[in-house]
Design a protein around this nucleic acid. Structure first.
Lengths: 297, 297
DNA sequence: ACAAAAGTGTTCGTCTTACACCCATGC
DNA sequence: GCATGGGTGTAAGACGAACACTTTTGT
């Protein structure tokens, strides 16, 4: 009854994310081209997660902490023969000051995703988006642009990163589009990446931005001790938008996500800040709990 | 630089869900054992989704509507040789009255997941859970049970279906546990399924219950025209708990999820109800929009 | 008449958002 | 002393949960 399985290749791809200097960054293998750490699933890998960790460590020297599966896709890519199944993962780490060369800021990859400077880069895209929308099937396209990019007074949703990338891809505005005649310069639409790695990063960004709102995953990106200001800056970096200080603190404290260490630091400038640590216990205690983002108009 | 890929088998597994008579049901292949529709990814499949649809149609005759990827796992199962990578999908359909034999109610599979009868079946489990929790590593286990199963006045979260299944699995209370000496009778913990198919169904249940709260996916399970009462019953079936009638209606109407057809039906008994249809346009218009569930204590 | 389900108006409390202001340090 | 970031109280408003009650059919 069962036909014989046709063999395929299985590949593991990692989006390792860390936050430093106000920007989330993804780990790339230091090569001439921008490329995510990846490699085939091997016999000696106990599980796919273990295999992924091994590849990341082998290619970049980094030990991942938190890891979660993102998405799996099958490509009939390179020249006939076998199919490749790519299983992508999101990994989070705490970045220390230092070797930045392998780490690419995701706002260099997706400049329009940073809304903190009042969305100047998004606005650089707006005319091109509208032109594309008007060109064909206008009604649906206009609605789609307005929703994904928050045009005409509609809320901007940080977690729609993938959908925005898809619009730009279809519109031929990014260099990797099949239809790339009208691609814009990399300062506006970001640089090219190998295969569909940029799409995978966009997936990771959307997922992380969504997850941060209902699960306490920010702490995977923080050092063991941190100030509330640093924590807030980390959330803002990921979300690409500002959050209200008092509301942020209320949420964090009233959900008992952190506890004081007793220490303070004056490294942040201004008045010394109290240091906190993440209460790992709440991972058991609570089903939910994240740091909600405000609605942005 | 790249080692040769070791070949693996790729398998597609479907959790097809429909709702009928107040219970969500999953499609199984009519065999002596409970088993989900599945089959290898073939060369002639254009994509994994297409392959999945083909397998479901071939094995059961059903054409799936909405499909989304669930999770991918690698098993070093049957006797050495090649590894199998299983990519699981959630599919939704509208069920018409009729052939029920291939459809298994997910409350037959997971009796404790139905909270509508005031959770009698959950309470049948409670003593066994507490016994397991006390046996070893009590502090963490007790917290875990309370959170996942909503004991001691903690909220019950419908979307934690997978986590609950995992607790029962570890506790050896379900027949498929490696440690099944203490497994309870199927009226309480449900029947055995092939491989890890029951875990996959639990994953699907959790995902669907979560998704229904922020995306208008319920409508994929409804006929083209329906009453608000039927829609509410569908949501309640999926969530396994009751929702407040007036609040439910307010949300549905004020989000413009539906529009009147003009017709009415008296099939529901009592006063005839107005018929509605889903406004498919809002899939473009809105980023979010679902039918929130109340907190249950 | 009565059961059964449809359908509506209004109150109450919590959670969200935002404003304004004070505090402690370095230069 | 002033710039810089840390830290807090409190009010306006949106949103969710819940209550009770009316309407229209079938039997």
């Amino acid at each position: 009854m069962n036909q014989p399985h046709e063999p395929v290749r299985a590949e593991l791809v990692a989006v390792a994310v860390g936050v430093l200097d106000g920007a989330p960054r993804v780990l790339t293998t230091s090569a001439s081209q921008l490329q995510l750490p990846a490699g085939p699933l091997r016999e000696d890998h106990r599980s796919m997660q273990a295999g992924l960790r091994a590849w990341v460590e082998e290619k970049t020297g980094l030990r991942l902490g938190y890891v979660e599966q993102l998405y799996t896709f099958a490509d009939r890519d390179r020249a006939g023969s076998e199919r490749t199944i790519s299983v992508s993962y999101l990994g989070l780490t705490w970045m220390e000051r230092g070797d930045l060369d392998q780490w690419v800021s995701w706002y260099d990859l997706f400049p329009w995703e940073d809304q903190r400077d009042d969305g100047v880069l998004r606005r650089a895209l707006e005319p091109h988006l509208r032109a594309w929308a008007q060109a064909e099937d206008a009604e649906r396209r206009v609605v789609r642009c307005r929703v994904t990019f928050g045009l005409d007074g509609i809320d901007w949703h940080p977690e729609l990163a993938l959908q925005r990338y898809e619009v730009l891809y279809e519109a031929g505005l990014v260099p990797e589009s099949p239809d790339w005649r009208k691609a814009l310069p990399p300062q506006i639409v970001g640089p090219w990446m190998v295969h569909d790695h940029r799409r995978i990063v966009a997936t990771a960004m959307g997922r992380l931005r969504a997850k941060i709102q209902y699960r306490p995953v920010v702490f995977e990106l923080m050092p063991p001790e941190f100030t509330l200001g640093q924590l807030q800056a980390c959330v803002e970096a990921i979300a690409g938008q500002h959050v209200h200080k008092q509301n942020f603190r209320r949420i964090v404290e009233q959900q008992h996500l952190v506890e004081e260490t007793g220490g303070t630091t004056s490294e942040t400038g201004g008045r010394p800040a109290r240091l906190f640590r993440f209460r790992r216990e709440i991972l058991d205690e609570r089903a939910a709990g994240g740091t909600k983002l405000p609605r942005t108009r």
